[in-house]
C-alpha cells in the first residue's frame, strides 16, 4: 500500500509497531491533537481504537501518549498521584514493552507525564506534556445525556444549564457539591471537564507552562489546553471557587498546601494524611523534610515500597 511499509521497530519481537499503534492510527490521533490545541477546550471526535486494555482504564490517555511518544522521551505514569498504583504500573509497563522508552517516577525528569486523577504538585515546565486519562469528557453529560443537545450547547456557548446545576447544589447543600471533575471554562469560551481530578488541582491548570492533552478512548474524544491558557473554574460572585484545605500537613514529609490521601491505620479511628503525589513526598523527604509520623512504625510501609503480594 505505502511505499514504505511501516517498519516495526519495537523491542517486542517486532509483533507490534513502535508504541503499539499503527502509523495510520497515530496520524489520525495527531491530527485530532492539533485541532484540539487550535481550539482549546473543544472536544475533537477521533476514531478511538480498541487497545489491549479495557475501555475506561486509560485507553484515551494511552492512545494520546502513543501518538506523541518518541524514542528519546522519558515517560512518567501516575494514577491517584502515585507511580506505584496498579494501573499506573500496568500502563508504564505497556510502553516499556512496546516502545522501549525510558521511564521515570521523577516528575522533573519526565518529558511526558500520563495521569489519572491528579496533577503533580511540582510546577511543570515548557518542555513537558501532561496527558490526562478521561472517562467522560463531556462536562454537560450529567445534565443532558444527549450528544446532539450538548454539542449544540457548546456550539452556542450556551452554558446556563451548568450554572443552574451548580446553583442548585448551593441551595440544597450550602456548597457546590462537585468535589472532583469540577468544570472549567477554557480561554473564555468552552466549558470543559478537567477529568476526575479533585478540584484542588484546578488552579494548576490555569496558565500552566506545559501543554495539557486529554484523551477519552471509550467516548472517542481528544481535547487540549495549550500552555499559558486561561482556565477558570466556574463559580458565582457570592460563592467563589475554593479548593479543599487540609488541616494537617503530610504525615511523612510535612508538606502543606498539597493534596493528601487519608490512610486508615487501624480499626480504632487511627488515621494519617500523606501526600497523594508520591514523588513529591519522596523528593521532600530526601531533602530532609520530615512529617510528624515519619518515624512512626505504623507508617513505615507507606514510606518504603511496601509489601508486594498478589
Amino acid at each position: 500500500m505505502s511505499a514504505h511499509p511501516d517498519t516495526a521497530t519495537s523491542p517486542d519481537e517486532g509483533h507490534y509497531n513502535f508504541a503499539y499503534l499503527d502509523e495510520q492510527t497515530k496520524r489520525m490521533i495527531r491530527r485530532a491533537i492539533l485541532k484540539g490545541i487550535a481550539v482549546p477546550g473543544y472536544q475533537v471526535p477521533f476514531a478511538s481504537r480498541e487497545m489491549p486494555m479495557p475501555y475506561g482504564w486509560g485507553t484515551g490517555g494511552v492512545q494520546v501518549t502513543a501518538a506523541i511518544l518518541g524514542a528519546d522521551d522519558t515517560l512518567k505514569v501516575i494514577d491517584q498521584g502515585s507511580d506505584d498504583t496498579t494501573n499506573a504500573v500496568s500502563i508504564r509497563g505497556f510502553f516499556e514493552k512496546t516502545a522501549g522508552v525510558e521511564t521515570t517516577t521523577r516528575t522533573s525528569e519526565a518529558s511526558i507525564i500520563q495521569t489519572r486523577h491528579r496533577i503533580p504538585e511540582a510546577l511543570l515546565t515548557e518542555d513537558q506534556v501532561l496527558v490526562y486519562q478521561v472517562p467522560i469528557p463531556e462536562p454537560l453529560r450529567f445534565l443532558e445525556p444527549r450528544e446532539t443537545e450538548t454539542r449544540k450547547m457548546h456550539a452556542l456557548a450556551e452554558y446556563g444549564l451548568m450554572h443552574v446545576k451548580l446553583y442548585e447544589d448551593i441551595a440544597r447543600n450550602g456548597h457546590i457539591a462537585t468535589t472532583y471533575a469540577y468544570p472549567v471554562e477554557v480561554n473564555d469560551r468552552y466549558v470543559m471537564d478537567p477529568s476526575p481530578t479533585p478540584k484542588f488541582d484546578n488552579p494548576k491548570m490555569h496558565e500552566m507552562a506545559a501543554l495539557q492533552l486529554f484523551g477519552a478512548g471509550r467516548e472517542k474524544r481528544i481535547y487540549a489546553i495549550p500552555p499559558h491558557t486561561k482556565v477558570k473554574s466556574l463559580d458565582f460572585d457570592d460563592h467563589p471557587f475554593e479548593v479543599q484545605k487540609f488541616e494537617k500537613p503530610c504525615g511523612l514529609c510535612g508538606a502543606e498546601n498539597v493534596y493528601l490521601d487519608e490512610v486508615i491505620l487501624d480499626d480504632k479511628g487511627g488515621r494519617m494524611f500523606v501526600c497523594s503525589d508520591s514523588d513529591h513526598c519522596e523528593d521532600r523527604r530526601s531533602h530532609g523534610h520530615l512529617g510528624e509520623m515519619a518515624a512512626d512504625p505504623a507508617a513505615s510501609h507507606l514510606a518504603s515500597t511496601g509489601e508486594e503480594r498478589a
Binding site: 480498541e50 479495557p54 475501555y55 475506561g56 482504564w57 485507553t59 494514577d79 491517584q80 498521584g81 498504583t85 496498579t86 494501573n87 489519572r116 486523577h117 491528579r118 472517562p135 468535589t179 472532583y180 471533575a181 476526575p196 481530578t197 479533585p198 478540584k199 484542588f200 471509550r218 479543599q244 493534596y259 493528601l260 490521601d261 487519608e262 497523594s276
Partner: peptide
C-alpha cells in the same frame, strides 16, 4: 467491550476523588 470496560473500571482506585467527597 466499551460497557464492560467502563463498568469494571470502578475497580480501579478512586481514593483521590473519594477523599474530596469525604
Amino acid at each position: 467491550i466499551q460497557a464492560t470496560g467502563f463498568v469494571e473500571h470502578l475497580k480501579l482506585p478512586h481514593y483521590v476523588d473519594f477523599q474530596a467527597e469525604l
